[in-house]
Simulated scan of single mutants.
Amino acid sequence: MRGVRNGALPPFVNKLYNVVCNKETDFIISWVPNLDVLDGAKSFAIWNIDEFINNVLPLMSKSKNFDSFITQLNNYGFKKMSWDCREYAHEWFQEGKPHLLKNVKRRRKQTVSELEKLHREIKKIESSSKEQDNELNVFKAYVDNTISNQKRILQTMARAIKSTIDHHNQVRKMHGVENNNDATQHLTLVGQQGHKPSVLGESSFAPTCEIQAEDKSAKNTTENN
């Protein structure tokens, strides 16, 4: 098995690195090849979970509990790279660079004061969220009220315009009836006057006839003489 032996490293990190580097177990657990051939792999994968639990995990711990192994990975900051397979990585856990392993450290447990601080931050965020919700509700109410007022104004204007148009049409109809009545009365009066003899005609016709009769009588007298 090719790996490292360093008493300064955490046992879990040291054993894991040796297991991943072991070529004899590459079909169970191995480095994931890097696309850059000049650089070593930066993640490892477990290819056969059953073989890993039965044959490899006992080399690292006294238990065959795979969940405990995953917990250890999380405690040291390893991250799962893919949901399709069990691939894990750590920025200081790289192929051919065992000197970087000193930077792989167990996460420090949070103290009570840190948890309280985190709790206060959560409360602060929740309070801020409530204030934003209240402001949003006030603004929404303002917008709804403004829209409602605008609708009422438009409806009032529409009714006023319709009333004006109706009144205008009614006035036009009334004037149209009056004009028709005046025209009818005028035509009726003209027709009645056309059937009556003119007084002026009567007075002017009689004298003319008398003058013509006198002229004719005088002419006959002259001819006889």
Results as ranks from 00 to 15, higher is better:
N18A: 13
V19K: 02
K23L: 08
E24P: 00
I29N: 00
S30R: 15
W31S: 02
W31G: 01
V32L: 11
V32Y: 01
P33Q: 04
N34W: 04
L35S: 08
L35H: 06
D36C: 09
V37R: 09
L38S: 09
N48K: 15
I49N: 02
N55M: 09
L59F: 04
L59Y: 02
S68K: 11
S68F: 15
K79F: 09
K80N: 13
D84S: 14
Y88C: 02
A89F: 02
E91L: 08
Q94N: 10
Q94E: 09
R107D: 13
R108Q: 08
L118Y: 06
H119Y: 13
R120T: 12
S129G: 08
S129I: 08
S129W: 05
N137R: 14
F139L: 15
N149S: 15
N149I: 12
A160N: 12
T164Y: 11
D166K: 13
H167Y: 09
H167P: 05
N169I: 05
N169R: 13
H175M: 08
N179Q: 10
N180A: 07
T188H: 00
A206R: 08
A206D: 10
P207M: 03
E214M: 08
S217W: 09
S217M: 10
N220R: 07
T222S: 15
E223W: 01
N224A: 13
